[in-house]
Structures are given as structure tokens and as C-alpha cells.
Write a protein that binds this DNA or RNA. Sequence first.
DNA 1: GCTATAATGTTATAGTATAACACTTAAAAG
DNA 2: CTTTTAAGTGTTATACTATAACATTATAGC
Lengths: 164, 164
Amino acid sequence: MRQAAPTTTFMDTGHDHAHCLDEALDRAAALCADRGVRLTALRRRVLELVWGGHKPLGAYDILETLKAERRGAAPPTVYRALDFLRTHGLVHRIESQNSFVGCPDPNKPHGGQFLICRTCGLAAELNDSGVDQAIRKSAAKAGFSVGRPIIEIQGLCPHCRKKG
Amino acid sequence: MRQAAPTTTFMDTGHDHAHCLDEALDRAAALCADRGVRLTALRRRVLELVWGGHKPLGAYDILETLKAERRGAAPPTVYRALDFLRTHGLVHRIESQNSFVGCPDPNKPHGGQFLICRTCGLAAELNDSGVDQAIRKSAAKAGFSVGRPIIEIQGLCPHCRKKG
DNA sequence: GCTATAATGTTATAGTATAACACTTAAAAG
DNA sequence: CTTTTAAGTGTTATACTATAACATTATAGC
């Protein structure tokens, strides 16, 4: 085990984000090494951009930055990197926003549970077993076999509630 | 009150769908009358198409049908009708599929909880208070104020499990 | 080094959604 | 009943999101 439990709640605005980022990149490198897959410079860079903050980024936002750095970056450049990162659980897609955010806990396979602030745009990943169990129970009642649960809760984060 | 509690689980393949559809249109007419808003021919027709089955439809699928019926139907034609229907809770958007499905219970305001079969594409709307409570509890722990919860559970419906 | 495979570059296009303005129809006011 | 006003729809153009298909380059294993 390389890391202690990663962040799952809203960060202070002034938290040490460089630390989050470094840890995320270290986890990714370790995970890819374990699985014998390649965290190439491009994939690493895209992951870095996604972890640039706790606010989900659009694919074309990422592309804008890449274009300034690499000759000929195009949509497939970023979508392919994102596909790789998602396959390995390093990044989640926020379905309700067409955006992407780093996963703080890529080793544990899970669907995403997100709290998303409608004011500041920050997203926090939950992974609440109570929610998961309630869903499984409810699905079971309908005779439904649960594959990938998508949970995206729009609302107000603690900071924006106070300022509100 | 015009109607008894509407469907919330997976329908038999051979259920009386004409009945579902009629009830949905009646509910919509009553709701619009109550609220003093207009269920125009276009809006009614789009709702009818969305309720053509229990499988969510894409906006451009709806558009294809409309084009055959109305001169000059274009994307705004269908998106505007869908916006109206969504505003009044008559239709939900399935975020993970860019598709739209009729709501069986438009009077009770609620975010959508959906079970979506990855094989046959059918969607069933839940509205499980256990799930809702688990989410509220978990969000409260993070100091987050819940607005609109989006829950889309991909998996296998009872019929597709059996056919396997 | 050679070969097979994986990754990326490159061009084109598909699929989803909205902006902006013109026109028509229906409701409200007189 | 007509005028006025607002709501709804038509129409054109365009923005945003994502993938297909094929060429080229880089990497890993032999």
C-alpha cells in the first residue's frame, strides 16, 4: 500500500493542493506499474490537468491546454487519454456535465458518487456504503441486477452555503 | 386527483401500453390545466413520442418522427418541447445517455432515480425513500445541501437476466 | 536490429444542443 | 370584436461533445 485513505470531502479553499496532485500522480504510477500498463507522458499530463483542481474539467478545456504544449493535439488525443485513465479508474466522468475529475481511490473499483456544488463547481467523491446498500436493496426489490451505479448530487457545498 | 399511483417497476413485455400512454397524456393535460400552462399540439405530440415505450429516446430520434409529420421540424422544435415538459416534470432526462423518458408521477417533484437495462434499454423509475434518505444523510455528513440528486443505475432488468 | 504491438498524429465527420431573429398564433385588455 | 401583447414556433446558423478511420511513430520482446 502506497497511500493512506485519500480525500473524500470538500477541501478547504486553501488546502495544499500540490500535495493532492503529487499523491494522485504517485498512485497512478504505482497502479500502472502493478498492472503492467503504460502511464505515458501524454496520459500522465492529462491526469495532471484533471487533477489541476477539484473542479471537473471538460475534454475541450483539457485540449486547450494540450494544444499550447504539443503540436497537433486534437480531440482524439484527449479522449484516448481519458479513456485509458477511466479504464483504470484514475478518472471519473461526470455524466450530468460532460466533464472529468480525478479519482482519489482508483484501486477500489466503484461507480462514482459525487457531490457537485452548483455555485463553485467543485466536486467531492463520496463512497458511502449506506447509499450503495440502499440502492442495491431497492434494485433487488425490482428484480434488477446492479452493474454501474451513477450518483451525481447537485447542491451547495459547505463554503458556498455560508457565503450564499 | 385524477389517477392512481403510476408504474414504478419494469413492465411485462406484453403489458397494455396503450393504457400507460393514455394515462400519461391525461395526467399531463390535467397538470397543465392546473398550472395554467399550455399543452400545445406539439408538446403533446412530443410527450406522446417519449411515452411511445419505456425506453428512453434521443432528441434526434424524436426529431426524425416529427420531421415526417411537420414541415420544418428542427432541433429547437424538439428541444423546446422537451424543455417545457421537463420544467413541468412530465419528462426526465437520462444524463448518462442523452435521452429522455416520460415521468409516471409528474406531480411529485423529485430528481430521477432510474434503473436502466444495458441489454434491452428499458428504464424504470424508482422513487425509493431509503435511497433518498441515505443520500441526504451522507451529504449532511459532508455539510452539503442537496438540490437535485441524479441516480442512474445501469444493470440488467428481470427479463434480460432470465434470457441471459 | 527486427518485428509485432501499442500509442499517437491527423483528417474528417457524427451526434448533441443552443443562439438569434423572424413569424404566427393565442390570450388578455380594451 | 378588435387591438395589443405575449407565448409559441419556424428557420438558419453555429457551438459543443465525441468517435471513426487510417497514417505514422515509438516501445517492448525477441
